[in-house]
Write a protein that binds this DNA or RNA. Structure first.
Lengths: 256, 256
DNA sequence: GGCACACAAAGTGCATGCATGTTTTTTGTA
DNA sequence: TACAAAAAACATGCATGCACTTTGTGTGCC
């Protein structure tokens, strides 16, 4: 009874639970960009009321993972290619900051944890791409966590998740071996301690990740049909063979 | 006009209204760090129900402007000094990105808008510090807006607001003339177009802002009384041994 | 057969009510 | 008077209900 600020075990934190679940589902591409997220369905699935589901969607929207349109069903965010580029630009700067703070200051335990994580990445190489991408992302988040800077952690996490989303949108089948090697190299260089060296290493690592993801600009898989058909729209719909004249709302993909 | 991207301007958007109002109140120091924000009071004040007030608080918490503790009244965030430093570090990198994108690409109208804003800053020089700080912040947000990169705009806005909060916490009476001059110089250099030059200019500008704000680490004005008294707590109250050094602010939250 | 309007189904926007947890006041006791 | 336990007041956590908006569908008119 006379316990002092023991908020640990009794906190239900349903909103947080739903957020985590949805985040994970999104970055593992179980929920593709554009997938609908009705409050009712979420609430029912997680055993809570719409109120909570709604709140969770609000948080996810604040993180940029979900798009919230008024009076319309929320959908998983669908960043444009330009947004994707900008996101990676920001990510590069943020993670340079991370490794700058970390260079030469990691404890042995931390280095071990990082190596263990990369081993896990390695182990997942045979599995589905989604898991590899998630693990690679979580490596970067783990790195950020070690700065113990709440703001940096939050921003890097957020943007890394967004990049995950982007990868699932634009990237073709993911070749993750190189990323894993780069992660190992990153750890070693961090242990050595040259801040500038690690920063440029991180820079080029993320650059190559972005390149692998974004070279093929012309392939926006789950994009809005309006955008996909834009190049074809200049021909008149005289021959409506199923894909010439999109009226208005033909977004009939995704979400069962 | 754009067929989408029309979020929030129309209709009620009560949550957005409350968010904007609270943001402004916070950055103008009408609400000091640590100020309580009960859902009831907010709801009543803005003529909405607790549900909406609660949702708004959630958004603001996601932006880092308010702290949300379970089962407790929400309060305006109170960043630690270390968090403040980290925030400015991030801000520098983000705004370097902004001016990098903008250098040499501003239209005449945009430059005019920027200059007009600085004129407004100038006009507000006699008034209260809070307004000067807000205007200076909004200058940076205006700059970010011109990139037309939603992510960059969001992040810079968020972090600029946080910096506002930090200024109100740590900064002594604000001397804003220099900042205004620096803003003018920034505009001119942006118009000329040397990206590197503008970037380093922005860097030094924000560095000096941070310095003006953060030199006096030992002066956390509106802090929690527990933190304020922390240095004195280690000795019995009979003889408080002067300043034992601020060292660390003890974290009482057991956030797992 | 195609188009427009009307109507029904689905979904969100929001307020309210009750349960639970926290803070403050009251009260009983040494 | 000082102090601690109980209780009232207060505030949040969450579910539910209703109104309004959007969307899908059917019907009548051309």
């Amino acid at each position: 009874m006379a316990r002092e600020t023991d908020q640990g075990r009794t906190s239900s934190d349903k909103v947080g639970t739903i957020c985590r679940a949805l985040r994970r589902a999104i970055i593992e591409q179980a929920l593709e960009p554009g997938a609908k997220l009705p409050e009712d369905a979420l609430g029912e699935r997680f055993g809570v009321s719409r109120t909570i589901a709604r709140h969770a969607l609000g948080q996810l929207a604040a993180e940029g993972l979900v798009e919230l349109r008024r009076n319309r069903i929320a959908v998983v965010a669908t960043p444009s290619w330009q947004e994707a580029r900008d996101t990676f630009d920001i990510r590069i700067e943020l993670e340079r900051l991370v490794v700058r703070q970390l260079a030469g200051r990691l404890s042995r335990a931390q280095i071990a944890a990082l190596k263990a994580h990369v081993d896990a990445e390695d182990a997942a190489r045979g599995g589905p791409d989604a898991v590899s991408i998630r693990l690679a992302t979580e490596f970067h988040i783990l790195l950020a966590t070690m700065t113990e800077s709440p703001i940096l952690i939050r921003y890097v996490s957020e943007i890394a998740y967004r990049c995950c989303l982007i990868l699932s949108l634009f990237s073709r089948p993911h070749s993750s071996e190189c990323a894993i090697n780069e992660h190992r190299l990153l750890i070693d260089t961090l242990a050595e301690g040259g801040a500038d060296k690690v920063m440029s290493l991180m820079h080029s690592h993320l650059d190559s990740v972005a390149d692998r993801a974004l070279v093929a600009q012309a392939k926006p898989r789950g994009r809005d049909i309006m955008d996909i058909l834009a190049p074809y729209a200049e021909t008149p719909p005289a021959r409506p063979a199923g894909k010439a004249g999109p009226g208005r709302s033909l977004r009939r993909d995704a979400a069962e």
